[in-house]
Design a protein around this nucleic acid. Structure first.
Lengths: 338, 338
DNA sequence: TTGAAAGCGCTAACAG
DNA sequence: CTGTTAGCGCTTTCAA
């Protein structure tokens, strides 16, 4: 690599000390009242030699890296891809770089990435935590490493987070289906311990109860993550005529897609035979013959807020945790009609 | 932040010099014949104090950061999301971290990200280059910064790259449509100067010619990137009955999705009214009422190869450029039938 | 078998 | 107004 230009090189070229160059190039020459002419010469030389500061050295010195670690649960999921884009965008605006990693919903991956990022002295984290990583977050708290959770949070854990109002999201969607006259509204969800999973279920359930319906385990299809075969089996079971299901609410984008696919295979007509309400956006929804209703998350807002909060913490402004709960948009289209 | 443990801390605790600790913890104690017992005590203390090496300091010293910069054209496109996942996975295996950025097909973004990454002393790049960034790559070459292109490459530029055989991809797809008996096979593509765009068109054209058809501009729908309105207009125009189009080949995933959406709106029946062949995979394809035919790129292979080549370059093994062209898989399903 | 010391590029006291 | 210097945490000669 063609030798990189360092402060020293330009100091020698101009005939001043490195300290002076550092001052000028960091625009501290006003306070320090550096000779205007010297300053100019330094700046010109820096430009001429195409000087690029070595961030690594800066970081070592300052203990700050001007980088944040973004840990998502699965980068190949477009939901997180879009979120990542929003975050990278916003971070860039503030002069921060983004180191990223995908835990793939796996505990060990998550821990390893956290360690790697810490070793690289990232200034803070934005994390969409995988199940069971509460203790990892506890560790971050103890170590006083700033972080903001997105998409998911843990009830027992005092942290900053930016999430959507999950309860309200499913509540509204369910209510909408019920108000359309559907009587047996089924619910499809993952089986896990994540708070947002529970919140979404609670929203669904409360809407049922408020509408005078009873909780009915026959209407629930709860499946493991990453087990397509099991999902297929359970979901087809749910759709058996004897169950009498006339509407379905999916609680995630992946479940929505898998479900719609099977609905297609079984030649079930939406919304005549079955009404459906999906979660999250997907380009896939647009290809379904019937316009899909869905719960729309404010993705770029989530990203923006998360970065904002993290930066505030980094700057020491925010003394305590900030919890942000954003509203979703309910996009009701033909698929949920009676 | 609770004081981080440094080499010095553990050196003091054990009562030896930092040099020794460094040796042991880098497993250089065999060659240097460090006292086995001292080595053991050092290792134990390191574990006890939960020592985490400061990568930043290591980097400053070595000039290497053990990080690679991944620059994709658009992280919110699932194609790149999946690619990113494959790359991050592979890099992690080899002890490298991934810094990532999305140029969003924009020249300035691309340049800024490259600069940022260089300042952070990333060891090398993996880049899905945006249009018109050839000069930026030239610069990297001149600066002797290793990089590998993915997905796209520039004909006039000698670089390492991992791409698919684009010509062959569209050639096969087109041939398949023609062999099914379709006579007017239209082609939908972006209007840009990227090599893979040209290669794909050439493949399509050659298949037409080889089949005894003539080039026909009435069959081409060439649209600008990021201009949905224009696409809609042009695409609907293409589908006018008087054009007689009986089959369509889409040359990217985004075009495929947008196109299928409009086909749905217009109530055109696939494949009876119109056969379609798409590019790339998408969960969206599965929701279309008719099983979609598509060109499948070997994503994780692309990621793996790119990392492999870059690491070889970093280790100084590969003296010259490596060009890898991978075969695609043609997934022919109902949508392309006559 | 071990330690002292230099130095990676930069910043910030402190001195002149 | 400008320069000297120490030191961030680590590796690596060189000397003991």
């Amino acid at each position: 690599m063609s030798k990189k230009i360092s402060l020293k090189d330009i100091a020698e070229a101009v005939g001043v000390s490195t300290a002076l160059v550092s001052y000028v190039l960091n625009d501290k020459d006003e306070q320090t009242r550096v000779n205007k002419d010297t300053a100019k010469r330094i700046r010109e030389m820096a430009k001429e030699m195409n000087y690029q500061p070595n961030q690594i050295a800066k970081s070592l010195k300052s203990g700050k890296s001007q980088a944040i670690g973004l840990l998502v649960a699965d980068i190949s999921n477009p939901f997180f891809g879009n979120l990542a884009r929003a975050i990278e965008d916003e971070a860039k605006k503030h002069g921060y770089s983004v180191l990223f990693g995908s835990s793939d919903e796996n505990l060990e991956n998550s821990q390893r990435l956290i360690d790697t990022f810490i070793n690289r002295q990232i200034d803070g984290f934005i994390i969409a935590p995988a199940e069971g990583t509460a203790s990892q977050l506890e560790y971050l708290k103890k170590a006083n490493i700033p972080f903001v959770l997105i998409d998911r949070y843990f009830k027992g854990l005092e942290t900053s987070y930016v999430v959507i109002d999950n309860f309200n999201a499913t509540y509204q969607a369910t209510q909408l289906l019920l108000n359309q006259g559907h009587t047996k509204v089924a619910y499809v969800c993952y089986k896990n311990q994540l708070q947002h999973t529970e919140d979404r279920y609670s929203g669904y359930l409360q809407a049922l109860l408020d509408h005078g319906n009873a909780e009915d385990s026959n209407l629930i299809c709860e499946v493991e993550f990453n087990n397509a075969a099991y999902f297929r089996e359970q979901f087809i079971e749910l759709l058996q005529p004897d169950r009498g299901v006339d509407a379905i609410l999916f609680s995630t984008n992946t479940l929505s897609i898998m479900g719609l696919k099977i609905i297609n295979e079984l030649n079930i007509t939406v919304p005549d035979d079955l009404a459906v309400f999906c979660f999250d956006e997907s380009e896939a929804y647009d290809l379904f013959y019937c316009p899909i209703s869905y719960v729309k998350q404010p993705l770029s807002m989530i990203g923006k807020e998360a970065v904002k909060i993290l930066l505030e913490q980094l700057r020491g402004k925010a003394s305590s945790e900030q919890k942000v709960m954003l509203d979703v948009e309910i996009v009701a289209r033909k698929s949920c009609q009676k």
